[in-house]
Design a binder for these strands. Structure first.
Lengths: 363, 363
DNA sequence: TTGAAAGCGTTACCAT
DNA sequence: ATGGTAACGCTTTCAA
């Protein structure tokens, strides 16, 4: 209502004009250099002087001007986080919020700023590339790359530290952090085997993405090690979506009516599959056990609740930052890879055949 | 693998040492001042000189040093986006990704950077406040405020432009953008009335949040204007979660067994309600029609798909930026409020009593 | 251990 | 229309 006050009265420190290093130096009766040393925690300052300066800093409410500092140190103390996602995963499970939280926490602990970049259009991407290439950030985290994106290569070529979230489809020589999708899938299918299921189908994701093919490999691994036959009729493909899961399930039921379990590459696909199974008169979990992947909130709201594979997404964010910070601070250009392990969260959608059990809220 | 190359060869422009204004001036045979004018699009430059400078800029791949610019202009050309969400909404529907997308797009169009801040701990919040108060950003977007957060007040008192996403619970004199929750709720309940439902319950959200109370008000509005009696037994409360929706539904069934429709304050609550209704032997939508709020992805995966109220979240992000940019550029300190209208998305969960219809995928 | 002074790359004012 | 020249606030040698 009447918020203009702050503009005219001079009581509060003038906006955007905090105390400078010089002011603190005067107040403490020392030189700018000394204040700078104190502020930056240099050991070469006598305890008494340090105390005096610290008091002056407090009295004046001094805060360093980052622009000035950045100008001389040639560091921005900020990292760019680039999220290029058409729309899919972005809006269907809380992957990005969780990842950002993980990244943000680790960045904050290192006093680094998070500059978020979400290009949508082609011009956006060009401006983005120019921005990143001109050294406005100390490093870049790339999150969901299109397969053929030239960005990581360009950045690397310019010597800008880059880490990638999720194994890139192309074999670019960049550091990345990924979830061990293959192992997660293996665990999910082993679980179904241990339940006594023998005709286990998979609804796989797109094979041109590492997540897609890795989860399929894991499925095949588990079948092989259990001595179960590899049957193409039990494999169908989709794009991680509800609709594609439903239609893949229809195909499987048609090709292999004796299916008694389903491992879906995403919870969304699993949900689609469950609705088709029900429509086809199969009971879940009695007739067909179902396991998903992602452990999204959806897994708790389906009926029955969905057994799923949980990924340490926040941790992935933290590791991305650690890798990047190493590259920045220690000028490490070695390519490193981190693989994070998953956790199977059993819920009511997967039990032994023809015998129900109540097992909700497994996580 | 062998990525060290970029470090030693001198072919590419040296990292972090782009051409300076001075270099361009030399190359173009003019003064720094002139180059600066060209770069900043000043009209007071002759066409020929402008062309020469532009060519020099291209040749040298000149990009302005933001730190240097910022140091003299006292502008950071960046805005802080603060998301303080315990965990609730953050992880259960794609509200934040959508909002960030909207914010990011509008910011990019104005060449402003998005600095994302997600404080988790108490110390985090203190550092956050110091950071924002020391003028490192030109303005701040606050997204999901706790009721008693002192942050907006502190920022405003220091003359830092602030806009808030979602009407703040306390009546602080700050600009905000909100969804017209009351009107959305009204539309949802009118829809149920028009279907012929007469015993319409609501599962409300927490009343200490504007979203919660607004949606409840809307429900009451619609009942009143339809001449339907106000019956406390038809009102139950929860916290927007699945579990709380389920338990609220249980209470309603118990207190008012003749309930024939439910308006839930969130899709999650609606999903919880549907599972309870089914367990109680009520058919959805035949016996009880259900409408949710948010139009989250969940609404499409429930069985039956859920009628819901869609909010223009991206648009909200855009408006937040517009308001903020006005405050920054034109030094407008006037408090302004924007209310965004919602849209009812009919799906199969709400039909006329005792008569089924197939109406999925209404969006 | 402390201080003086030289930049860092821009912008903006004042002449011309 | 163009150029010279102070700032802007900080870090970092180099001396003392």
């Amino acid at each position: 209502m009447h918020r203009e006050s702050a503009l005219t009265n001079g009581a509060t420190p003038r906006v955007g004009r905090g105390a400078t290093l010089d002011a603190v130096a005067h107040e403490a009766g020392v030189s700018r250099a000394t204040v700078s040393r104190v502020v930056n925690g240099s050991p070469k300052v006598s305890p008494e002087v340090r105390r005096q300066v610290e008091r002056a800093v407090d009295r004046l409410g001094y805060v360093p001007n980052l622009a000035a500092r950045s100008l001389v140190t040639r560091r921005s103390d900020s990292v760019g986080v680039v999220i290029t996602e058409p729309t899919g995963r972005l809006f269907n499970d809380p992957f990005f919020p969780r990842l950002l939280r993980g990244i943000s926490a680790e960045l904050a602990a290192r006093k680094l700023q998070l500059v978020l970049l979400m290009p949508e259009t082609e011009p956006d991407e060009e401006r983005l590339e120019r921005y990143l290439l001109s050294g406005h950030v100390d490093g870049v985290i790339l999150v969901s790359l299109h397969g053929d994106d030239p960005l990581p290569g360009d950045l690397l070529a310019r010597g800008i530290p880059v880490v990638i979230g999720g194994r890139p489809a192309t074999g670019i020589a960049a550091s990345y952090v990924d979830v061990d999708n293959r192992d997660g899938a293996r665990a999910a299918v082993r679980h179904l085997v241990s339940l006594g299921r023998r005709r286990i189908a998979t609804l796989a994701g797109p094979l041109d993405m590492a997540v897609g093919s890795d989860r399929l490999e894991g499925y095949r691994d588990a079948l092989a090690e259990s001595g179960l036959p590899h049957d193409r009729r039990l494999e169908a493909h989709g794009e991680f979506t509800y609709e594609s899961g439903a239609s893949a399930m229809r195909r499987v039921i048609h090709a292999a009516p004796d299916v008694d379990a389903v491992f879906a590459a995403s919870d969304l696909m699993a949900a689609g599959a469950m609705s088709v199974l029900r429509a086809a008169g199969r009971r879940v979990p009695e007739d067909v056990a179902v396991v998903g992947f992602d452990d999204s909130p959806l897994a708790v709201t389906t009926d029955p609740p969905l057994t799923s594979v949980r990924q340490p997404v926040e941790e992935m964010g933290g590791d991305l930052v650690r890798l990047l910070a190493d590259a920045i601070d220690r000028e490490i250009r070695t390519v490193r890879h981190v693989l994070l392990s998953t956790e199977l969260v059993p819920r009511a959608s997967s039990v032994a055949p023809a015998q129900s059990r109540d097992n909700a809220h497994g996580g």
